[in-house]
Design a protein around this nucleic acid. Sequence first.
DNA 1: TTGAAAGCGCTAACAA
DNA 2: TTGTTAGCGCTTTCAA
Lengths: 341, 341
Amino acid sequence: MDERVIRNIGSSDRIKIGDVAEALGVSKTTVSRAISGKGRVSKDTRAKVLAYIEKHGYHPSPIAKGLVQSKTYNIGWVMPGDSTITDLPFFQRCMMGVIEVAALENYDVLVLMVFDHDMSSLERAVMNQKVDGIVLGRTLIDDERVEFLKDSGIPYVVIGSSPNEDAIQIDNDHISACKELTSVLIMKGIKKLALIGGDSNHVVNQTRKKGFELGVEEQGLDLSQIKIYMDSDNETAVEHIVDELIQDGTECIVCMDDKICFQVLEKLRRDNILIPDQIKIASFYNSDILSSNQPAITSLQYDPKELGSVACRALFDFMEGKEVLRKKLLSYEVILKGSTK
Amino acid sequence: MDERVIRNIGSSDRIKIGDVAEALGVSKTTVSRAISGKGRVSKDTRAKVLAYIEKHGYHPSPIAKGLVQSKTYNIGWVMPGDSTITDLPFFQRCMMGVIEVAALENYDVLVLMVFDHDMSSLERAVMNQKVDGIVLGRTLIDDERVEFLKDSGIPYVVIGSSPNEDAIQIDNDHISACKELTSVLIMKGIKKLALIGGDSNHVVNQTRKKGFELGVEEQGLDLSQIKIYMDSDNETAVEHIVDELIQDGTECIVCMDDKICFQVLEKLRRDNILIPDQIKIASFYNSDILSSNQPAITSLQYDPKELGSVACRALFDFMEGKEVLRKKLLSYEVILKGSTK
DNA sequence: TTGAAAGCGCTAACAA
DNA sequence: TTGTTAGCGCTTTCAA
């Protein structure tokens, strides 16, 4: 290990608006106007100013600007701190979408890790005015965070759906998607199918369940004969349920997300049960693991990054006082693969 | 879709330092001092102020504070924008470590997505003084970003190693780890082993290669007889290499990271080659996929979150003018599993 | 121990 | 079209 030590010296010889003004023999106001484009400045002056700041690398301080405009030029991206490994890529990609759109508006993105029942970091960021707006990455059925944001008065948008009437919501069209995939499976001749679902406190899981039920009903199957398990996204539960379903002669297991599906696949592999020969498998959420599985898994495909960028776009529109749809649903694809052949 | 629209009203009835001062019949200076703890204030006054702000929910504006102190109370976390799916959990966990430590110092974290040859977002954040310091999530052999940070004068810390003498570096002890795992494998009696590696432009990959070579030499094997493939983290390359190695009677394939290992496993599964009976497998980087594989894969285990928090700690120490080690290596574990039995 | 006043770097009325 | 002036909300000399 290198034992050498380093110490920060620090420096601050940044050029400021007054320097530019002085050098050019104009007022600070003029410089400010030339840069922002607000107010009238002659073409010549403007060109002169722009040339100068370009050459001398002048960058207006967003802190000073922020002080007078009460803006931070940051938006907050709220991520669940307890995301499991399988959730991470989803949130990461959403975040990329948010960041991309934010950059277009010269905004940066502050990450706020929030745990389901500790939102102190969110509170801090909002109360301390560290951000001008918030994108919430996931909604819960009974979401204190949404309540808090609503009360705080800060502009916010949620990804996913919320029972809160006031929230601007961007979501995948889970209900149509799940309904469609379920219908398709039944149309392929499957009569005995079952659904294994995750945390029933997540809005998305309730929505998927609803979509599944609609699909079943649409195809005229008796819903009361169909097994639906919720809160089963752990190995022990899955183990149990799969055993039960196999016993029962289930033709197709529909998994609510990729994590559950992965666990089902592991279980079936351990038991040497062949897909799709002995049982068919489908998933309401796709992931790399599922699509590279042998056989690949029939599933629904969404675009998380799109979700992030649309949400961020909506947030900016809202902040700028434009009218914004209260709820926007993004499209999906049904991907039929070998697991339901 | 809900067609209702929503429009932002906006509000700003926040209490400020002057209000507190007036209400208490003291000066703004006194309030400021009572809060910051700097300068002398009587116990009573201090208590009075603290009680008042607590009761009335006063939050000093970090923007105003920032303006006078030239601070943003934000640090920048630089993530490669082109991270592949397998990298994501690593960076995400690192980031969590960074965020946790930052929160202790009342700092927030700004995410900067930087692509290998486009670092405009990093430049913008630094030039616009959006952050007080930077944690760089990955280093390249020839890293423009490190050069830029060095020249800019902003405090920064890199995760991973950098040829740059001036950079404060926090890294896993890849070289010892890889050397140790390689040695252990050879001590188990393996004589014919091979290494499949990724992007040779990543510092970490060069380091792992070096560790592998040291392990081979330590055990007295002839390095020139050992096959080492670099830049092979794609399916076609892996396909080819594995065929070659099997032909060649290789006893053990060592994979430089979990992504490569995953591809090797897929390939072997397709070809119905059994692990560890027909070939043994080890990986220089662990992940959930590998540890839940059947059989579980022998690998090296690190703690990405620790990496993030140690890096962030070092950054703060440096910003506060403390002495900081130029390079710090974190420990690892060798996890022996069924894949090399 | 406290306060008055200046100023951080910028923008935005209001004048000219 | 341009400049003057007054802040934004806080901290920090300097003086009391």
